[in-house]
Simulated assay, not measured.
Amino acid sequence: MLTPVLMILITVLPYLAYRLVWRRGPSQDLRSAAAAGLGLVFLFTASGHFLQTEPMAQMLPSWVPERTALVYLTGVLEIAIAVSLFFRRSRVAGAWAAAAVLIAFFPANVYAAFQQVPMGGHSWGPVYLLVRAPLQLFILWWIWAMVLEVPGKTRRAAV
């Protein structure tokens, strides 16, 4: 269960480091630091698609075709999302894609937990979801509040 803690640390450390070094930095730079942490966590999770491909393929129901290829493909997708988060021009699209991926991939985590797949904490069974669901909610909050929202500004409706 070290992985969720590690994911939270990877996500927040660039932001915290920026806050400590430049206490009154521009809010755009704070968002860049928050996005960098998110990018790093997506690189971290993408690595599992290539280093633990078979256990990740077991996270998918047997009726899903080409499970191994799908694991590789989603790993490449996570790398693309991560890279997009490091550049200002693609950051918003990358943040929305990250949120969509977190939501789209969650059913695989539910399935893996109920099947007690020996990958990560899934072998704990449904209890693992008590850790996984709040972790994903935290990352979704991070995307919204720290990467997409402009700190100190309110959103205005489009005319």
Rank of each mutant, 00 (worst) to 15 (best):
L85T: 01
L40G: 12
L137N: 03
T154C: 02
L13D: 09
A97L: 15
V117G: 00
V127A: 11
A145E: 04
R155N: 04
F87W: 14
R88K: 14
S62H: 13
V83W: 07
T45Q: 03
A100K: 12
P26Y: 03
F114T: 14
V159L: 15
V92S: 04
A98G: 10
Y111H: 14
V64M: 14
R31V: 01
A36K: 01
L9G: 13
V5N: 03
Q115I: 04
I8Q: 02
R156C: 08
W142Y: 04
A98F: 01
L40S: 05
R23I: 15
G152H: 01
Q58A: 15
L30Y: 05
A99G: 14
I139K: 00
R132I: 04
A69Y: 11
N109S: 07
A113F: 02
A82F: 04
Q116H: 06
L85K: 00
A108M: 13
N109G: 04
L6F: 06
P14E: 06
Y18M: 09
A95W: 01
W22S: 14
P118K: 09
L77Q: 14
A113V: 06
F42P: 00
W96Q: 10
G94P: 04
L140A: 05
V131F: 05
A113C: 11
W141C: 03
V12W: 02
V64Y: 07
L102H: 07
G125D: 06
P61M: 11
G121S: 11
P55V: 06
A82Q: 04
L137H: 07
L73K: 09
L30M: 08
L9T: 12
L38N: 01
E78A: 13
W141G: 04
K153Q: 08
P134N: 06
A100T: 13
Y111E: 10
Y111V: 07
L13G: 10
M59K: 05
R31N: 02
T53V: 09
F87Q: 07
I79G: 11
G121A: 08
A133I: 05
P61R: 10
P14K: 04
Q28G: 05
L9K: 04
P151A: 04
L9H: 05
H49P: 12
Q116Y: 02
W142I: 00
Y111Q: 10
G152Q: 03
G152Y: 00
L38V: 04
H122C: 08
Y128Q: 01
V21I: 15
L60K: 09
R89E: 13
W63D: 14
L140R: 02
S47L: 15
R91D: 02
V147L: 00
V150T: 12
L2I: 13
F105L: 15
E149S: 08
W96P: 12
V64F: 12
Y111N: 10
R88G: 12
E149T: 09
A100F: 12
V64S: 09
M59S: 11
